[in-house]
Design a protein around this nucleic acid. Structure first.
Lengths: 180, 180
DNA sequence: GGTGATCTTGACTGGCATTTAAGAGGCGCG
DNA sequence: CGCGCCTCTTAAATGCCAGTCAAGATCACC
């Protein structure tokens, strides 16, 4: 039996709420945006959000998934460029969501779903990098280098740094693999 | 005019509150420990804490300062060992306070005092590392390497990893400077 | 033993996520 | 057509928490 033949299907309403949440999460940070503000931005009352999302955490995860999918698509554009450039692209892209990145790291401890999302995100991104490192390296060395790269990216994203510092750090990081 | 000739001088009471807060912050995390619980652990009412500390933030900073001083003293023990060992020591030490590290990074955005503390901490630690890198490197390269090291340490501290992974990553990181 | 500074407390405020239960509106079936 | 049911929305309430306020209690010194 088909349900939901309303003017505005569930998926659409959900997307609206996510758009409002996303904008505020990115701009003001997850912790600093009350559900009430998201609701107002979407033109509903706070409780309505709870009909579409289990809780604030679920809303966060939905936004994270959306952002991930969008940027994964964009990544294909730079996937064949040199590693240093990919690194720089990644950092600059993530910098646009630095508050969200901080939030994820903060919430990993208290929210199992966020923890899982975070683990999966790391797995995918690290896999993507690992496969581009020189074949001569041992598995252990590759794993270590990947961690160094991942953590450096995170640091560059979450700390206040000027663009030069970011660029130089990416270059320095990549220079390691060029001559190996 | 001498004040505070009470049985329990201000400094002592402050230390008690800090001890209670520290234990709970490290164990449960700053965000998950209400002032009330700290108060109960110290045998007072929540409001008493506010006589000794401006707010929860100030209490956090006091604990951070204490931790920093204590561990800075211990650092002198390993200061002359090879860089890779210093790195490993640092990571293992900080891992004991990983929740606090996450909290600092999360709060940097909303609390100027925490931001300042964090900046100063980075300055000192990075300075300590920079001076041990090979003299032949350019200033820019040193700065970049230091950032890579600092961010890698942070990543190793705040992410869930087994000891082997931590050790291998430190070695790999340090191997860069050995042959330079 | 009174006076003022130092400390402690209970009661309160305001913000927030989330729950509960009561509505409003459309859909299909008799 | 109308009646009940599922879908959606809401107002009102709950409970937790950081922080404020104003009234005590305790002490140090005169």
């Amino acid at each position: 039996m088909p349900v939901n033949k309303r003017a505005e299907p569930e998926a659409e309403k959900k997307a609206q709420l996510m758009a409002a949440a996303r904008q505020l999460f990115v701009q003001d940070g997850y912790e600093s945006t009350p559900m009430g503000r998201i609701a107002k931005a979407a033109g509903v009352t706070p409780n309505t959000i709870y009909w579409y999302f289990e809780d604030k955490d679920a809303l966060l995860l939905a936004v994270l998934d959306e952002l991930f999918q969008e940027n994964m698509a964009t990544f294909l554009t730079v996937a064949r460029k040199p590693l240093a450039e990919q690194l720089l692209w990644l950092v600059q892209t993530l910098r646009g969501f630095s508050r969200l990145i901080s939030t994820v790291h903060a919430r990993v401890r208290e929210s199992k779903p966020v923890d899982q999302w975070h683990s999966q995100f790391h797995s995918i991104v690290e896999q993507l990098f690992a496969m581009q490192l020189p074949q001569e390296m041992t598995q252990a060395a590759i794993a270590a280098e990947v961690r160094i790269a991942a953590f450096t990216v995170e640091g560059l994203v979450t700390h206040v740094l000027d663009d030069d510092a970011v660029r130089l750090t990416c270059q320095q990081l990549a220079s390691r693999w060029a001559r190996a």
